[in-house]
Structure formats: C-alpha cells, structure tokens
Design a protein around this nucleic acid. Structure first.
Lengths: 224, 224
DNA sequence: GCCGGACTTGACCGATCGGTCGGTGAAAAC
DNA sequence: GTTTTCACCGACCGATCGGTCAAGTCCGGC
C-alpha cells in the first residue's frame, strides 16, 4: 500500500471524494496558487467550477477547509511519495533520489504544491496548519537523516546538517517561481542538475588556492 | 553617488520623503510581508501607523502605490547595493561577495524584501510590476555575468550559467522562510556558508567512484 | 490679523467579502 | 407510493473592502 490510491487532476490523496469535490479542489488549488488565499474569493472558485457558491458550502464547511484540503492533500503524502522512491545504495545517491522525487511530486501536483508553500505561511493562527507543518517537519527530518547518513559513510564532508538540508530544499522550493513547464527541462532533470552542482561543487578540478572549506568570515556588522 | 542616500526604518531609497511617509512605508512593508497584499487592508495600515485611513490617501493615491513604493523601494537599489560591494579579485570571490551582499541587503530591508518577493508575484496585471521585474532581471544578469567570468577564468566548471544563477539565488531567496533573526547566524554568515557548499561541493575529498560531473540522467517520464 | 497650503479627520459610498437561508428536483430507500 | 436523502441553486445577510469628500487644524509668511 505504498502507491497513492487516488490521483486525479493533480489532486493527491483525496480518496473517496466525489468528482465534484475533486473538481473544486483542483480549481481552488489553481486559484490559490495564482492569486493567494486572500486574493481568491469563494465566488472565484464557484465561477471556475461553473457551480453556485452555495454548493461549495454544501461540500465544505468554509473557505479554510477547502484550503486545508488542498494544502494537506498535497503535503500529506509527500513524505511517503519520496520515501518510496529512495533506492538502496550509497547515501549520496539517496539524497539525489530525494531531490528528483520531490521534483516529480512538484511536477505532478504543481498547483497544490504552490498553494501550500506560498499562501498564508505566516498566518498568526498557526494551529490551523499544525498538521501540515508536522508533516513538513517529518519530510525535512527525513532529508537530514540522509545527509547524516552520507556524512557517517564519509561520502560528503562534515557539513552542518540542518544548513545543508536548507540549501537542498531551497533549490527545490524556489523552483515554482521560475519553472516554466513549456521549456524543455523537466523538474526532475533540474533537480538532478542541482544535485550535481551541490554535491560536486562548482569549482574547477584544476584550480587550487581558492577559498576552501574554511568557516565563513564574520559579517562586518553584528546583528542585534 | 553610489551610496544610498536615505535609509531609515528599513525603508531604502525613499529620499525626500517625510517622516510620516517613511512610517507608512515601513508599517505597510511589515504588514504586506506578514499577511500578503490582499490580506492587508488600508485600515490595517492606518491602524498600525496610528493615523486615519484618509491620511493614507493624502500621501498615496491608492493601495497599489503604497505597495509599489515598498517593493520598488526595496529592489530599486539592490543592484547598486550589491555591485558596490563586489571587490576586485578572482571571479569566484566576486560571486561570494555577491551572495554576502545580497544577504546583507535582506537583513537590512527584511520586510520590504519579503513583501516584494512574495506578494502577488504572478498577478496577471504584470504591467504594474514591470519596472520592478526589469530591475530584478538586471540583478540576475549581473550574477550571470560573474558566473560566466568565473568559467572563463577556469575557476569553476563549465556549468549551465542560468541554472547556476538560479541555484545561488534560490538559496538566498528562500532564506526568509526559515531565517530567525534571534538565532546566532547572520544572513551574511548563512550566505557565506551556502557559497562554500555550492562552490566546493559537499563531496568528501577522499571519496571517489561516486557520481561525478556527468550530465543528469533523463527522468523516467518525458515531459509533454 | 489673516491667508494659503500642508496635514489630518470622521462620515460616508458602492462593491465585494465569507457565509446562511429556504427551497427544488430527482434519485434512493422504505 | 411515500418518505428520506442529497446535490444544487438564487436571494440574501452583516461586515469589510478600497476609496471619496467636506471640513477642519496647524503653522509660517505677509
């Protein structure tokens, strides 16, 4: 039972949902992704679905629930999706597979992904997103485990694990801001390219004498 | 005339603006950053400034103009700010300085930075942001020039220049999502750490036989 | 004294917001 | 054949949205 059971119109893990509900989630995700949570009205969603606004409240209790279904639905299975695509082998190749799998997830559920990673991320009422954040943490901790594994195996340098995870996730999380699906490279290919750059570094093999792995210089100004 | 003339309360390049205008821009930037453009009402801004809503319309023609002043004000001088902090020397060190300077800019004008990089980035009415996008492009092209320079000098591998620029900017642009100013590391230190990781790579020097600089494998699925 | 312009206000506008209401029609359950 | 269930709708609600307006208040120059 590792494969996701229901996948339709880019809406993940919405098993036992009617076609209408799936349609609403798909349209709402697309709108949330392009106009944000506050910028998307219930009328917008109803209009995009070709139904009355009342019907939205028949299937969902309020606007928050629609967003929650979109966002949780997209992050719900991300961890499992990625985990199942990590092969046996050297830890560094696992990290590569992690990146490629995450990119594949992004490509498949693009709108829900964007909606969940951009819309009211810093809402003061964080309790509404507690479950989503917990799953995000599990996802990120999974990556950190792979990084630690690669360090223990001696495949990568003794880098700062959380910081390395942030670098890797940054390269993936920022992709939706510039990715153009009409261009040739797929998200998976882009992720693989980023892995190559981060893992092997940009430095030319012939060069020496340039700044190595010394700790970063302190900034000119003290913060705070 | 390369140094920024007016900097107050984290609002860059608002020369000849009254204290009141600077206060409005600072509060509006903070609100836009935390609640988004649509999620921030003119009443919110007025309340945060302790003034009436009407006064906002005395100093600005409408909500869009306030946002434009916040966003353009923050991106207006980013290019100059960074350019002036690029030292003479090896191209790779210029890239490092580019990253550190951008991080310093982020630290100084954090709210305006966040507001301009997050709020309605994909607004269909792009014309309103044309100037901002043009300046963004100039900023990004400047980085690409440095990367090309480093390639020509043989300091870094013959990587894909736009993709390398995206990786570097991703690491900086995503920082606001996890950066905590109360923690010890400054943005400049974080940027320097990222440069080290990207430039030198994660791979342990002792290791061999792991995936090297070969082009990324094609993904399992063909796009389109 | 008073005049003009910059600054500031509360009352108000039409539009739109999220959400509710009573009801309809058709199929399923009895 | 009746009742229940369920997807669905148009009309409507109070609140809030961005924005306007006439009326001050303040203050330096004449």
């Amino acid at each position: 039972m590792t494969e996701l059971s229901t996948m339709k119109d880019g809406v993940a893990n919405q098993a036992e949902a009617s076609d209408r509900v799936l349609q609403i989630l798909a349209e709402a995700g697309r709108l949330f992704a392009s106009k944000g949570f506050e910028g998307t009205s219930m009328r917008d969603i109803a209009l995009a679905c070709g139904i009355s606004k009342s019907l939205l409240y028949h299937h969902f209790s309020n606007k928050d629930e629609i967003y929650a279904r979109v966002a949780v639905g997209s992050t719900l299975e991300l961890y499992l999706f990625v985990r199942d695509r990590i092969p046996d082998g050297p830890p560094s190749l696992k990290i590569r597979a992690f990146m490629v799998a995450t990119a594949e997830y992004f490509r498949r559920y693009r709108w829900a992904w964007i909606a969940s990673t951009t819309a009211f991320w810093n809402d003061p009422d964080r309790t509404r997103h507690k479950e989503r954040l917990t799953r995000r943490d599990r996802f990120e901790n999974f990556l950190r485990g792979l990084i630690q594994e690669a360090i223990d195996a001696g495949e990568i340098r003794k880098v700062d694990v959380p910081m390395t995870g942030r670098l890797i996730l940054s390269s993936l999380n920022w992709m939706h801001r510039w990715y153009n699906p009409n261009k040739s490279a797929t998200p998976e290919q882009i992720a693989a390219t980023f892995f190559d750059m981060i893992f092997n570094g940009l430095r030319s093999g012939e060069m020496i004498g340039l700044p190595g792995a010394e700790p970063p210089r302190a900034s000119r100004r003290k913060s705070r």
